[in-house]
C-alpha cells in the first residue's frame, strides 16, 4: 500500500458544498478515473482517505490536501490527468500529486484571501485600525463548548489587498490545524465588532496555502 497525497483546488462552482460532499465527490471521481484505491475491510468497505483539514461550506481553496491509500503505485502525472478528466469543470481540480509521509498534524497556520461585500459604505480606515488592535474578543463555538478568544493572537499576518466603497479584500495568516482551527468567517465577525462601518453582507474566503510547523 502507498499513500498518495493530492493537492487540489475547490473552485467557485463548489464553494457551497460541504466537506462530506467533497469527500463523496472524490470517491466517485476516483472510481470513474479507475485509480486503484484501497478499500477498508469489513462489511461496508470504503475508500481509505484522509483530508488535511476539512473546508467549510462557503470557502474555496487553492491548497487542499488529501491522502489516499492506493494498492498500486500509479504514475503521478497520470493520476492528475485522469482525475481531472473525471471532475466537473470549475469545481474540484487536482493540481499536484506526490508520495509523502509528512503528517497533517504539522499544519499550524493557513493563509486566506477574504473578499467581503459590505452592507453600506465602508470606511477603510476602520478596518486598518481594527487590524492594528492588540485585542478583539470573540466567541468561538466548537462542537463541545463556546469559549471566548482574542482573535488578534491568532492572526499572524494581515493586509488589505484592495477595496472599493462597498467591498474589501483582505489577506490573513491565521491559526489552523486539527486541534485548534480558526475559520476565516470568524475573523470577519471579529473585525466587524471592531470596525464600525464593516457590516458584511457576504463573505467569500479562499484558502491559499497551509503552513507546516
Amino acid at each position: 500500500m502507498n499513500k498518495l497525497r493530492l493537492t487540489f483546488e475547490k473552485g467557485e462552482a463548489v464553494r457551497y458544498i460541504g466537506h462530506l460532499d467533497v469527500l463523496r465527490t472524490f470517491v466517485r471521481a476516483m472510481r470513474r478515473a479507475e485509480i486503484p484505491v484501497k478499500y477498508s475491510e469489513g462489511f461496508n468497505p470504503h475508500a481509505v482517505m484522509t483530508f488535511a483539514l476539512p473546508l467549510g461550506v462557503g470557502v474555496t481553496s487553492e491548497c487542499e490536501l488529501v491522502d489516499i491509500a492506493v494498492t498500486d503505485e500509479p504514475h503521478l502525472s497520470d493520476v492528475i490527468t485522469r482525475l481531472n478528466a473525471n471532475l466537473a469543470p470549475g469545481g474540484i481540480k487536482v493540481v499536484a500529486a506526490e508520495y509523502t509521509d509528512r503528517p497533517f498534524r504539522e499544519i499550524i497556520r493557513a493563509e486566506y484571501v477574504i473578499d467581503i461585500v459590505n452592507n453600506g459604505r465602508l470606511n477603510i480606515d476602520d478596518i486598518s485600525a481594527a487590524l492594528a488592535q492588540k485585542e478583539i474578543l470573540i466567541e468561538k463555538k466548537s462542537k463541545k463548548k463556546v469559549s471566548e478568544i482574542n482573535i488578534m493572537e491568532n492572526i499572524f499576518e494581515s493586509e488589505i489587498l484592495g477595496y472599493t466603497d462597498f467591498s474589501v479584500r483582505l489577506r490573513v495568516v491565521i491559526s489552523a490545524g486539527n486541534t485548534f482551527n480558526i475559520k476565516p468567517q470568524l475573523v470577519c465577525d471579529a473585525l466587524s465588532t471592531a470596525a464600525e462601518s464593516l457590516n458584511p453582507r457576504a463573505v467569500f474566503p479562499c484558502r491559499k496555502r497551509f503552513i507546516f510547523a
Partner: peptide
C-alpha cells in the same frame, strides 16, 4: 451569491455537477 451562505444546503442552487450539460 450574496445570499447563498444564508440558506440551508446552498448546493441545491448552484448546479455545476458532474454530468450536467453545458
Amino acid at each position: 451569491r450574496h445570499f447563498l451562505s444564508k440558506v440551508e444546503k446552498p448546493a441545491r442552487y448552484t448546479g455545476g455537477e458532474w454530468g450536467s450539460v453545458i
